[in-house]
C-alpha cells in the first residue's frame, strides 16, 4: 500500500518536472475511474461524473508542481483537488457557483517538526483505518462521499442522532483526528 502511494507521488513529480505523458497516463488510469466513482457516490449522473473526473485530472496535470510529497500522499492531494471542485460540479446543473480556490498546498504554513514524517503519518493512518469497525467506516464514507450532515446520516440510517455523533466521534478519536484534546489546552 505505502509503496504504491509513493509510486503515484513520483508520477506526479514526473509530470511536474518533464510534463511526462506516460506518467500522467498511469495516474489517469488509476485515479480517473475513482474520481468518477467519487462524484457518482455524491449523486451525480455518470456523464457529469465523467466530465468531473476529466476536469480534475486536467487540474492534476496543470498544478502538478504544487504537489509536495513531504506533505501529502498522491491520493490525498488528488482527493483535495476533487473536494475543492465537488460543490461546483454538483451544482452546475442547477446554478453555477464558483468554488473557492482552496489552497492545493493544503492550507497551513507547516511547522518544521510537523514535516518530519508524512510517510509515517500515512502508514499510521492506513493502519488505524483498517482497524476501524465497519459501521464507523460507513459513517465516514457517508460524510465524505454523500456529504451528509450528521442529522441527515441519522435520518438515512434510521439511527438516533446521538448514536451517529458518538460513532463518528469514536472513529475520529481512533484516527487521532478529533479536536477535543486541543479544546482543553488553553
Amino acid at each position: 500500500m505505502t509503496g504504491a502511494v509513493d509510486d503515484y507521488g513520483r508520477l506526479i513529480e514526473a509530470v511536474a518536472a518533464t510534463r511526462d505523458r506516460d506518467a500522467f497516463a498511469r495516474l489517469f488510469e488509476h485515479f480517473a475511474p475513482r474520481l468518477k466513482a467519487y462524484l457518482m457516490r455524491a449523486g451525480a449522473p455518470p456523464g457529469a461524473a465523467e466530465d468531473f473526473a476529466q476536469d480534475a485530472m486536467l487540474t492534476v496535470w496543470r498544478k502538478a508542481d504544487l504537489f509536495d510529497p513531504r506533505r501529502a500522499s498522491a491520493a490525498t492531494w488528488i482527493f483535495t483537488i476533487a473536494r475543492n471542485r465537488r460543490l461546483d460540479a454538483l451544482r452546475r446543473e442547477s446554478r453555477p457557483l464558483p468554488a473557492p480556490e482552496m489552497s492545493l498546498a493544503l492550507e497551513e504554513p507547516e511547522q518544521p517538526d510537523a514535516l518530519v514524517s508524512e510517510a509515517e503519518e500515512a502508514a499510521r493512518l492506513n493502519a488505524a483505518m483498517s482497524e476501524l469497525p465497519p459501521e464507523q467506516l460507513d459513517l465516514l464514507r457517508l460524510a465524505f462521499f454523500q456529504g451528509d450532515a450528521h442529522s441527515e446520516i441519522a435520518r438515512k440510517l434510521n439511527l438516533p442522532l446521538g448514536t451517529v455523533k458518538s460513532r463518528i466521534r469514536k472513529a475520529m478519536i481512533k484516527l487521532r483526528i478529533a479536536l477535543e484534546p486541543l479544546r482543553e489546552t488553553p
Binding site: A37, Y38, E50, A53, A72, L125, M129, L175, I177
Partner: peptide, 28 residues
C-alpha cells in the same frame, strides 16, 4: 490545520478504496 490535513488523508484513503467506474475510451 494539522488535524484538517489528517482528515484529508482519510479522504484520500477512502478515494483509493472506491470501486472504480470505467471512463470513456477516449477520456485520456
Amino acid at each position: 490545520a494539522a488535524v484538517a490535513r489528517r482528515l484529508q488523508g482519510v479522504g484520500g484513503r477512502l478515494l483509493e478504496e472506491l470501486e472504480p467506474q470505467a471512463m470513456q475510451p477516449d477520456a485520456l
